[in-house]
Design a protein around this nucleic acid. Structure first.
Lengths: 166, 166
DNA sequence: CTGAATGTTCAGTAATATCTGAAAATAATG
DNA sequence: CATTATTTTCAGATATTACTGAACATTCAG
C-alpha cells in the first residue's frame, strides 16, 4: 500500500485502538480491514500488508473477534480462514455501546454509597439515568439511521456501482 | 474510603480510562471525582485518597482537563486549586463524541483511496455517512435527554433533597 | 492415515508507559 | 519584597505491554 493509505491505517488503528484499548497491531488490523481489497483477508494477507508476525496477527484477530469488531470466515474451497469487518458494526455500536457493563459498574458504585447521604451519589444517579434513557432510546435511533442510510447511501451507490447495489 | 468504594473507583478508572486512553492514575482521579465528598477536591485530597504522588496527580489533572472531563476551580479565599467533574460532561459527550477528529480521519482515508475503484471505499463512505447523520441528529438528541432528565431526575431529587434542588 | 498447510501458544525480549520524588517555577500572603 | 504554599516539570527507576519467532496443535486434502 502507499504511504497515504498506511498513514490512514495507523491513524485509524490508533483512533479505534484508543477507544477500545487495543494493542497497536490489533488496531491496524481493524484499520486495514476498513480499506483493504478484497474486504476478506487471510492471516497471511494481514501479516504481509501490516508487516507483523503470524503470532501478532493471531492474537490481534482473537481480540477483535472478542470485541465483535470482525468475523472469521471459512470460505468454501479455501484452506485459510479469512477475516472481515463485522457487518452491522456501527449499528450495533449505536444500539449498545457497552451499556450493560457500564450500568453494572454504576450499580456497584451506588451500592458502595448506599450508607452515604443522598447528595453524594447524585453524580452516579444522574449518570445511571442517562444510560437508562439511552438504552430505551437507542433501538429507535438505529431505525432512524437505517432510514437515513436508505435515502442517502443508496443514491451514492447508484452512481458508484451503476445500480448493482452491494 | 472503604474497600467497596475503592473497587468502584478503580473499576470506573479502568472503564473510562480504556475508553479515553488514560493512564491508571488519571482514570482513578476521574473515578474518585464521581463519588467524592465534597465534589471539589484539592490536589492534596486526590493524592491522599488515591495514594498517588503529587507529580502523578498534576499530570493526571492536566490530562483530564485536556479531555474536558474535569475543571480546575479557583475558590475565593482558598490557596489550593480544586478539581471537579466538568458540568454537562455527559451531554457534551452525547452531542459530540469526537466527531471532527473521526471525520477528519475518514476524509484522510477517502483521499488515500481516491484513485481506487469506488467499491473499495464503500466501507469508509458508509461510516462517513454515519457520522454525518449523527452530527446532524445529536443536538436534538441532547434536547430529548434534557427533557427526560427534567421529568425523571427531578422527581428523584425531590425525595432525596426535600425539593431544595441542586 | 499421512503429509502439508494453517493456526495458536508462549517464553523471551524489546519497546513503551507510568510513577515517584526532588528540584524548579509559579502564585499568594502579609 | 520576602516568605511560604502550591504546582509543574522531568530524570531516573519500575512496571507494564506488546511483539517475534519457534515449538506445538489443529485442520484439511488426498
Amino acid at each position: 500500500m502507499d504511504d497515504a493509505l498506511w498513514e490512514f491505517v495507523v491513524g485509524a488503528g490508533d483512533h479505534w485502538g484508543t477507544t477500545y484499548g487495543l494493542p497497536p497491531v490489533a488496531g491496524r488490523v481493524f484499520g486495514w480491514l476498513l480499506v483493504c481489497d478484497p474486504p476478506e483477508q487471510t492471516a497471511d494477507d494481514l501479516a504481509e500488508h501490516l508487516q507483523a508476525s503470524k503470532g501478532s496477527i493471531s492474537t490481534a484477530t482473537r481480540i477483535l473477534i472478542g470485541f465483535q469488531m470482525i468475523d472469521r470466515l471459512r470460505i468454501r474451497g479455501e484452506r485459510a480462514d479469512r477475516f472481515r469487518l463485522k457487518h452491522g458494526l456501527w449499528e450495533q455500536q449505536l444500539l449498545d455501546p457497552g451499556l450493560d457493563k457500564t450500568r453494572a459498574l454504576l450499580t456497584q458504585g451506588l451500592d458502595a454509597l448506599a450508607d452515604s447521604p443522598a447528595p453524594r451519589s447524585e453524580r452516579l444517579r444522574e449518570l445511571d439515568l442517562f444510560y437508562a434513557w439511552y438504552a430505551e432510546r437507542s433501538p429507535q435511533l438505529v431505525e432512524e439511521w437505517r432510514e437515513y442510510r436508505r435515502t442517502h447511501l443508496a443514491a451514492k451507490q447508484e452512481q458508484a456501482t451503476g445500480g448493482r447495489g452491494v
